[in-house]
């Protein structure tokens, strides 16, 4: 899978094979996960996403949409 999925799996502490666009974070999407994901998106895509919108993401697909809508 992509570098982004590998990183996200590490942050969410799941196997990368479990992640898909529909994967729901649930309770595990806490402040530390958000902080780590900001760094991951910066590293992989060189983009600074809106923090509030990132916090509101529920699924992997939500994050992917947010990244694609964000200017690099």
């Amino acid at each position: 899978m992509s570098e982004f999925y590998e990183g996200l799996a590490e942050i969410m502490e799941v196997d990368v094979s479990e992640l898909s666009t529909d994967y729901e974070f649930g309770e595990a999407w806490d402040s530390l996960a958000v902080v780590s994901t900001i760094a991951l998106i910066d590293e992989v895509y060189d983009k600074a996403v809106d923090i509030q919108l990132l916090q509101d993401c529920k699924t992997v697909g939500d994050i992917e949409n947010l990244i694609s809508k964000t200017d690099g």
């Binding site: 402040s31 530390l32 958000v34 902080v35 900001i38 760094a39 600074a48 923090i51 990132l54 916090q55």
Partner: peptide, 11 residues
């Protein structure tokens, strides 16, 4: 606000 501080730091 750890997320805001991380974003600020990286920028």
């Amino acid at each position: 606000d750890g997320a805001a501080i991380m974003a600020f730091t990286l920028a």
